[in-house]
Protein backbone atom coordinates (compact mmCIF):
# COMPACT_ATOMS: atom_id res chain seq x y z
CA UNK A 1 0.00 0.00 0.00
CA UNK A 2 1.28 3.41 -0.94
CA UNK A 3 1.40 5.97 1.84
CA UNK A 4 1.05 9.46 0.44
CA UNK A 5 1.15 13.02 1.72
CA UNK A 6 -2.20 14.76 2.00
CA UNK A 7 -2.24 16.62 -1.31
CA UNK A 8 -0.97 13.78 -3.51
CA UNK A 9 -3.55 11.57 -1.82
CA UNK A 10 -6.34 13.96 -2.67
CA UNK A 11 -5.12 14.21 -6.27
CA UNK A 12 -4.99 10.45 -6.63
CA UNK A 13 -8.43 10.12 -5.04
CA UNK A 14 -9.76 12.59 -7.61
CA UNK A 15 -8.39 10.55 -10.48
CA UNK A 16 -9.83 7.38 -8.94
CA UNK A 17 -13.26 8.97 -9.01
CA UNK A 18 -12.70 10.06 -12.59
CA UNK A 19 -11.57 6.62 -13.70
CA UNK A 20 -14.55 4.83 -12.15
CA UNK A 21 -17.38 6.78 -13.75
CA UNK A 22 -18.22 4.22 -16.45
CA UNK A 23 -17.84 1.18 -14.22
CA UNK A 24 -16.46 0.26 -10.84
CA UNK A 25 -16.63 1.68 -7.34
CA UNK A 26 -14.46 3.72 -5.03
CA UNK A 27 -14.03 2.80 -1.37
CA UNK A 28 -12.73 5.17 1.26
CA UNK A 29 -12.00 3.86 4.75
CA UNK A 30 -11.40 5.91 7.89
CA UNK A 31 -9.79 4.28 10.88
CA UNK A 32 -8.12 5.35 14.08
CA UNK A 33 -4.64 3.98 14.12
CA UNK A 34 -1.26 4.43 15.73
CA UNK A 35 0.41 3.38 12.44
CA UNK A 36 2.59 1.05 14.48
CA UNK A 37 2.77 -2.70 14.72
CA UNK A 38 1.52 -4.56 17.75
CA UNK A 39 5.10 -5.25 18.84
CA UNK A 40 6.00 -1.59 18.63
CA UNK A 41 2.85 -0.65 20.52
CA UNK A 42 3.61 -3.15 23.26
CA UNK A 43 7.13 -1.80 23.57
CA UNK A 44 5.90 1.76 23.93
CA UNK A 45 3.23 0.71 26.38
CA UNK A 46 5.67 -1.22 28.56
CA UNK A 47 8.06 1.73 28.45
CA UNK A 48 5.21 3.83 29.77
CA UNK A 49 5.12 6.06 26.71
CA UNK A 50 1.88 7.34 25.31
CA UNK A 51 0.91 6.06 21.90
CA UNK A 52 0.01 8.70 19.39
CA UNK A 53 -3.04 7.95 17.34
CA UNK A 54 -3.90 9.40 13.96
CA UNK A 55 -6.76 9.00 11.54
CA UNK A 56 -5.73 6.65 8.78
CA UNK A 57 -7.46 7.16 5.45
CA UNK A 58 -7.35 4.48 2.81
CA UNK A 59 -8.85 4.62 -0.66
CA UNK A 60 -9.16 1.97 -3.32
CA UNK A 61 -10.84 1.44 -6.66
CA UNK A 62 -10.31 -2.30 -6.50
CA UNK A 63 -7.07 -2.13 -8.44
CA UNK A 64 -4.93 0.33 -6.60
CA UNK A 65 -4.84 1.26 -2.94
CA UNK A 66 -3.56 4.52 -1.55
CA UNK A 67 -3.43 5.79 1.98
CA UNK A 68 -2.61 8.78 4.09
CA UNK A 69 -3.11 9.86 7.66
CA UNK A 70 -4.20 13.00 9.44
CA UNK A 71 -3.51 14.10 12.99
CA UNK A 72 -5.12 16.60 15.33
CA UNK A 73 -3.62 19.59 13.58
CA UNK A 74 -4.30 18.90 9.94
CA UNK A 75 -7.58 16.96 9.91
CA UNK A 76 -9.74 20.04 9.49
CA UNK A 77 -7.97 21.19 6.35
CA UNK A 78 -8.07 17.68 4.93
CA UNK A 79 -11.72 17.07 5.67
CA UNK A 80 -12.82 20.20 3.85
CA UNK A 81 -10.81 19.37 0.70
CA UNK A 82 -12.10 15.80 0.94
CA UNK A 83 -15.66 17.06 1.15
CA UNK A 84 -15.08 19.24 -1.91
CA UNK A 85 -13.83 16.27 -3.92
CA UNK A 86 -16.81 14.16 -2.88
CA UNK A 87 -19.22 16.92 -3.78
CA UNK A 88 -17.59 17.35 -7.18
CA UNK A 89 -17.71 13.65 -8.07
CA UNK A 90 -20.84 12.25 -6.47
CA UNK A 91 -22.92 13.61 -9.29
CA UNK A 92 -24.90 10.50 -10.20
CA UNK A 93 -26.98 10.54 -7.03
CA UNK A 94 -30.59 11.54 -7.44
CA UNK A 95 -31.58 15.04 -6.61
CA UNK A 96 -34.87 14.85 -4.83
CA UNK A 97 -35.13 18.50 -3.95
CA UNK A 98 -35.74 19.57 -7.52
CA UNK A 99 -38.58 17.08 -7.90
CA UNK A 100 -39.97 18.17 -4.57
CA UNK A 101 -40.13 21.76 -5.68
CA UNK A 102 -42.13 20.82 -8.74
CA UNK A 103 -44.37 18.53 -6.73
CA UNK A 104 -44.89 21.06 -3.98
CA UNK A 105 -45.71 23.73 -6.54
CA UNK A 106 -48.32 21.42 -8.02
CA UNK A 107 -49.79 20.46 -4.67
CA UNK A 108 -49.88 24.11 -3.65
CA UNK A 109 -51.91 24.89 -6.73
CA UNK A 110 -54.23 21.97 -6.08
CA UNK A 111 -54.60 22.80 -2.44
CA UNK A 112 -55.31 26.38 -3.37
CA UNK A 113 -58.02 25.41 -5.82
CA UNK A 114 -59.58 22.84 -3.48
CA UNK A 115 -59.76 25.43 -0.72
CA UNK A 116 -61.51 27.78 -3.04
CA UNK A 117 -63.89 25.04 -4.04
CA UNK A 118 -64.69 24.31 -0.40
CA UNK A 119 -65.38 27.93 0.33
CA UNK A 120 -67.79 28.13 -2.57
Amino acid sequence: MVVLQLDPFLNELTSMFERSTAKGSVWVTLKRSSLKSKVQRNKLASAGETIEYRCLIRATDGKKTISTSVGQKDHQRFQSSYATILKAHMTSLKKRERKDKKKSAETDKREGSSKKAKKV
Partner: peptide, 26 residues
Protein backbone atom coordinates in the same frame (compact mmCIF):
# COMPACT_ATOMS: atom_id res chain seq x y z
CA UNK B 1 -27.46 2.65 1.57
CA UNK B 2 -28.77 5.54 -0.50
CA UNK B 3 -29.09 6.94 -4.00
CA UNK B 4 -30.11 10.42 -2.90
CA UNK B 5 -27.87 13.45 -3.22
CA UNK B 6 -29.50 14.86 -0.13
CA UNK B 7 -28.14 12.00 1.99
CA UNK B 8 -24.67 12.65 0.65
CA UNK B 9 -24.85 16.07 2.24
CA UNK B 10 -25.67 14.47 5.56
CA UNK B 11 -22.78 12.09 5.01
CA UNK B 12 -20.43 15.04 4.81
CA UNK B 13 -21.35 15.83 8.38
CA UNK B 14 -20.79 12.25 9.49
CA UNK B 15 -17.40 12.34 7.75
CA UNK B 16 -16.49 15.39 9.80
CA UNK B 17 -17.65 13.67 12.98
CA UNK B 18 -15.47 10.65 12.27
CA UNK B 19 -12.47 12.76 11.26
CA UNK B 20 -12.76 14.56 14.56
CA UNK B 21 -13.31 11.37 16.56
CA UNK B 22 -10.43 9.56 14.94
CA UNK B 23 -7.86 12.31 14.63
CA UNK B 24 -8.54 13.96 17.96
CA UNK B 25 -9.70 11.00 19.98
CA UNK B 26 -12.93 9.24 20.93
Amino acid sequence: KTDQAQEAKKMEKLNNIFFALMARGP
